[in-house]
Write a protein that binds this DNA or RNA. Structure first.
Length: 748
RNA sequence: UGGGGGAUCGUCUAAUGGCAGGACGACGGAUUCUGAUUCCGUCUAUCAAGGUUCGAAUCCUUGUCCCCCAGCCA
């Protein structure tokens, strides 16, 4: 099972019986567009963790904006999530289904003086909000009475006011450094028809109000969303608290997916659709689920892709090559092979009798454990691909050339005897001979024929439409330098015709094939009986094409410039830090730390007052105590200066190694008493006796012969690992310095 | 600029003070009736500078760079 920081967190919550160990997630799309591969990441995460932890995942339409939403999208979303293989059971919800409850909560907020109706217009509100660096000002309407607000809000609902004339705002803090908390609007007037609630409402809740409350009402335990909602989390928590919701959901953010050569924002995708740059949301060039489906991607491939990219918080742009890799991997095992010729070149086999042979050809290569075959009609005239012939080939070309042999897949070995050209000098036909002793492609004399190419019988070939899809954009990060629409790939769709073997005649929509040596294809819904149309899902890897392309041009890969290290600025100490340095004799770093963290300084001074060893105590307090305090999200260390002083003495007098000192410190944070008690209780002591340490080292060396070999081979880092092992072997008691010396001596 | 988040091979992602690992990619080789698949090998990384430590990607300090927030969108 995949592991990531979210799953780790949920596992810890389950372990600690938070929410009684239950897990309930949700996937909350707004039905204002189609789902894309970025949503697939979220879907796989939300439904995935629910399944892994025995919980549920709800599907919720986050429909709070009647202006942009449409039932077509609701249907498409459900279709896509289902197709991806996920099941929400009875748990299909709509934010619009909570409008009554949300309204009640809004009134509750008003009654609790946590919300007010504000008549500022948009421009004024923006001005009052302040900027990133300046605090906002309170709205003149902020102090309306509860009765006034209730009256106004009810009249908003009753439709007495024009759109934009007023909003309901949360009353939080106009000076908050978090812009989201500067009295955000939570209800606005929209005299719009809603696709589900019709004209029942003319006020609609905003995301920050509706989303967290929906989560809470549904009993969502973990509300997983993307990083851009990070600063909204404080508001999320505020609303749940202010509304006095009995169920507290927790929001956690992860990085959204970006893909190279792709745009992912709904706005841009909508622009592509509405501007007719593509043929709708399910255009196979679109990164939408519907587009990928039509392109021939499988849900399994998409799921695998989502597993491989992982979940983290880094801003990330995944290489499109990975998506292509997973779909090839999946399709390789499930696509029967057929023969198709893209650029037909006529081949006449002069010594072949005027007859038709039906050859049996397996659908699958040796390494795919599937069975089945079809018959391939073979005749005197066949087509091969023009790229499989070269009149003057380089020596590493092992297809057809004058006087050379090549194998026709599943058929015969042929030899090129003559090249026929037209008046312009173009090759228009090849005259070949065949070796009758090679039926089925097997040479009777065992001679090697290195090239094998695909072909179709001229008289039997089916002429079909193929749609050759390629990446939609020519730049890795469309839109970074100029408008993304200027970076579209003019060859993202090439409609062409191919000669394919006759067995494809009855292919129907969604049948998948590998056209050998060409690519993976899927029959499109536009297929007609007897006239299938194929979409190319992805081309096969082609190392020959790559090799030949290299001769032509070697495009230097532009890598992003490494961040230049600027010369370290010799930062001066603040007056306070300088004073500390002078009076306590601590180092500059320590002085700086103490000047910033008063509780650290306080602890240090208290330790000194109790007879602590200055140097040791300072290092302890600045490097380790501070780290622990932060890691445990504490205000200050949970022990006294006296206890720290004791610890510093134990370390300074050699009773404890500094490593042991840190272990004891951790125990002090765990509330296991003072250092002396801990040392006594746990029997911690330091072994400095060289003979004893040598014995330990010998044991470790004997037990880790391979590691020793790696060290001798030059991997000096192994030394650290061996020290670690030996430390463990000694029960953590060996003096690390001595141990290190002994180990070095033994290994030398 | 106030606040929040992030920085590990070209890309994505592991490593909770002890051998920087995996995948994609790139490059090379073997096998092959698909120049595919498969297999093998090679390549490349801890943002910087200090500090603590026997030992730091990880703890501390100071910097640098990137992203998000100023919708009555979500």
């Amino acid at each position: 099972m995949a592991s990531d920081f979210i799953r780790d967190m949920i596992a810890a919550d389950v372990e600690s019986k938070k929410h009684n160990g239950k897990v309930c997630t949700r996937f909350p799309p707004e039905p204002n567009g189609y789902l894309h591969i970025g949503h697939a990441k979220s879907i796989c995460l939300n439904f995935g963790v629910a399944k892994e932890f025995g919980g549920k995942c709800h599907l919720r339409m986050d429909d709070t904006n009647p202006a942009t939403e449409d039932p077509e999208y609701v249907d498409a979303i459900q279709r896509d999530v289902k197709w991806l293989g996920f099941d929400w059971g009875d748990n299909l919800f709509y934010a619009s289904g909570y409008y009554d409850k949300l309204y009640e909560i809004a009134e509750r907020l008003i009654r609790n003086r946590r919300a007010y109706v504000c008549d500022l217009n948009e421009e004024q509100m923006s001005a009052y909000r302040g900027t990133l660096s300046e605090p906002g000002k309170n709205s003149p309407f902020r102090n309306r009475t509860v009765d006034q607000n209730l009256d106004l809000f009810r009249r908003m609902r009753a439709g007495e006011f024009k759109e934009g004339s007023c909003v309901l705002r949360a009353k939080i803090d106009m000076t908050s450094p978090n812009m989201k908390l500067r009295d955000p609007a939570i209800y606005r007037i929209k005299h719009a028809h809603h696709y589900r609630t019709g004209d029942a409402w003319c006020i609609y809740p905003l995301y920050d109000f509706a989303h967290c409350l929906s989560d809470s009402m549904e009993g969502i335990t973990h509300s997983l969303c993307t990083m851009e909602f990070e600063s909204a989390r404080e508001l999320y928590d505020w609303v749940i608290a202010a509304a006095e919701m009995p169920w507290v959901s927790r929001q956690t953010e992860f990085a959204r997916l970006n893909l190279t050569y792709t745009v992912m924002s709904k706005r841009k995708l909508l622009e592509l659709v509405e501007g007719k740059f593509v043929n709708g949301w399910d255009d196979p060039r679109m990164p939408t689920i519907a587009g990928l489906r039509r392109r021939g991607y499988t849900p399994e491939a998409i799921f695998e892709f989502c597993n491989r990219i992982g979940i983290a918080k880094n801003l990330s742009t995944v290489d499109l090559a990975l998506l292509e890799f997973v779909v090839r991997e999946d399709l390789n095992a499930r696509s029967p092979r057929i023969l198709a010729v893209h650029k037909p070149l006529k081949v006449v086999i002069d010594n072949y009798p005027d007859q038709i042979e039906n050859l049996d050809a397996p659908y699958w290569p040796q390494d795919v454990p599937n069975e089945g075959s079809r018959t391939l009609p073979f005749s005197r005239e066949v087509y091969i691909d023009a790229d499989d012939f070269m009149e003057a080939p380089p020596k590493d070309f092992y297809r057809l050339a004058p006087g050379r042999e090549v194998r026709l897949r599943h058929a015969y070995v042929i030899k090129c005897e003559r090249v026929i050209k037209n008046a312009e000098g173009d090759v228009v036909e090849l005259r070949c001979s065949y070796d009758p002793q090679t039926r089925g492609g097997v040479t009777a004399d065992g001679r090697k024929v290195s090239g094998t190419i695909q072909w179709v019988s001229a008289a039997h070939a089916l002429d079909v439409e193929v749609r050759l899809y390629d990446r939609l954009f020519v730049t890795e990060r469309p839109g970074e330098e100029r408008d993304f629409k200027e970076e579209m790939n003019p060859e993202s769709l090439v409609v062409a015709r191919m000669k394919v073997e006759p067995s494809l005649k009855n292919a129907t929509a969604n049948d998948r094939f590998q056209f050998e040596r060409v690519g993976f294809f899927i029959a499109d819904a536009d297929s007609k009986p007897g006239a299938p149309v194929f979409n190319r899902t992805v081309a096969l890897k082609d190392s020959w094409a790559k090799q030949t392309a290299k001769h032509v041009q070697s495009a230097p890969k532009t890598s992003k410039p490494k961040i230049e290290a600027k010369a370290a600025v010799a930062t001066e100490l603040s007056a306070e830090a300088q004073a500390l340095k002078d009076c306590h004799g601590v180092s500059s770093e320590e002085a700086r730390t103490m000047a910033i963290e008063p509780h650290i300084l306080e602890l240090f001074e208290a330790a000194l007052a109790s007879g602590g060893v200055a140097k040791t105590a300072a290092a302890l307090v600045c490097n380790d105590v501070l780290g622990e305090v932060r890691a445990r999200k504490l205000e200050r260390a949970p022990f006294s200066g006296k206890e720290l002083a004791d610890l510093s003495q134990l370390i300074a007098d050699g009773t404890l190694s500094s490593k042991q000192g840190k272990d004891v410190l951790a125990k002090m944070f765990d509330g296991e008493g003072g250092p002396k008690d801990i040392v006594k209780k746990l029997g911690i002591s330091q072994v400095t006796d060289v003979a004893a340490i040598e014995a330990v080292v010998d044991r470790v060396l004997a037990a880790n012969v391979d590691a020793v070999a790696r060290f001798r081979a030059g991997n000096t880092n192994v030394l650290g690992a061996l020290v670690g092992l030996a430390m463990k072997e000694s029960g953590g008691k060996a003096n690390p310095k001595t141990l290190n010396e002994v180990l070095r001596k033994k290994l030398a």
